[in-house]
Amino acid sequence: MNLEKVIFGFFIVLALTLNVAFVVGEIANSGHHSLWMLFAALLVSLFTTGLKIGDRSQIGAIFLSTSLVANLQLILAITYWAVGEGGMDLPPSQDRMVTIISLASGALVANVVSVLMLVTDTLMSRR
């Protein structure tokens, strides 16, 4: 067992699960989506990017790029929440909530790709 692999796998999967936790629920209902969950998903995603930096292999490059996509989408989502009427103090309007969840769903796809790659890479090495 390799400690680096454990940490790496943990954070990649955690980024996905937090992302799912934020996105589930009715898309326009602001009561179903917690700002704290979005914040946690973004933080874990950023940390995962940090873990991925420095890998010289091909698959390392793709890992990093999926992570960057997830970051970008989540940052856009949280910014859009913050600049709305009432800022972060009030729940966003229905239209605004739809856009935020759409962006976060995009990040979810990138995270799914990342996890799939993690699984295939591990299976391929067969050690």
Partner: peptide, 18 residues
């Protein structure tokens, strides 16, 4: 990475943090 494993028997840490 593969050659590192074959040479030393352990994986080289991949990320900068690791």
């Amino acid at each position: 990475y593969t050659l590192h494993y074959l040479h030393l028997g352990e994986d080289e840490p991949r990320g900068l943090i690791a």
